[in-house]
């Protein structure tokens, strides 16, 4: 009897041994800039979220948070979900997510300051907790950080193994006058992300959303 049980268990043990330890799921955390200059762009963010909901697979994770005065806070997380392995349940979760996003866009309050670094730190924390194989932070912002008095953000950030994709980086009035400011701003972020072990990308053409999750 013992031999029979062993014989039955052997394939299961072998299969377990074959199990790939590297996670193939992916996690995406999207930060939405709600500062005065950028709040009008949020409708475009809806399209990005819808694209993500249509693309992410069962087992993947998606988080959505706002960037406001102090973004390094759980309170700024609008919604987060790890999609169920069953496609039917996963579809229900996606519908619910979409509803939350719609509600947020329709009732968003403008923020006086823009704490992007805090949002990125909060995103990195969430993504690392998901243990996903592929982690991405989408920053839907003009990347102009404005911190309230007393907020300290001028330190290196640790985002090893995380891709940071800046979406729809709009040009500010001062950028139009002097484009070097725009380029310098992006360059500063690139250096900061790469110094923290991350990968930096900029996608301004929202017609090509497939590039968001591409390598």
């Amino acid at each position: 009897m013992k031999k029979m049980i062993l014989a039955l268990l052997a394939p299961a043990v072998l299969l377990a041994g074959c199990a790939d330890t590297t996670s193939r799921s992916q996690a995406v955390y999207m930060l939405l800039d709600t500062s005065g200059t950028y709040a009008a762009e949020l409708e475009k963010a809806q399209a990005v979220v819808n694209y993500l909901l249509g693309t992410l697979q069962p087992g993947d994770s998606l988080g959505l948070a706002r960037i406001d005065t102090g973004s390094f806070s759980e309170k700024d997380i609008i919604h987060k979900v790890t999609f169920d392995g069953r496609p039917s349940r996963s579809n229900e979760q996606k519908r619910a997510f979409r509803q939350v996003m719609d509600n947020f866009v329709s009732s968003v309050n403008e923020s006086p300051y823009t704490d992007i670094t805090g949002g990125v730190l909060q995103a990195a924390e969430y993504l690392n907790e998901t243990r996903a194989g592929k982690k991405t932070i989408l920053v839907f912002s003009d990347m102009e950080e404005e911190l309230a008095k007393g907020f300290v953000r001028d330190f290196p950030i640790q985002i090893s193994g995380i891709r940071v994709v800046a979406l729809n980086v709009t040009k500010l009035r001062k950028d139009i006058k002097d484009p070097r400011k725009y380029m310098d701003r992006l360059e500063q972020w690139k250096k900061r992300v790469e110094a923290g072990g991350g990968v930096w990308r900029v996608i301004n053409d929202l017609e090509r959303l497939e590039r968001i999750l591409a390598e």
Binding site: A19, D20, R24, P58, G59, G85, R86
Partner: peptide
């Protein structure tokens, strides 16, 4: 293959 993911889950892998 698709409905099997409803039974065994669509996010787990055996090897690749």
């Amino acid at each position: 293959a698709l409905p099997m993911s409803e039974m065994v889950g669509g996010g787990s892998y055996i090897g690749p």
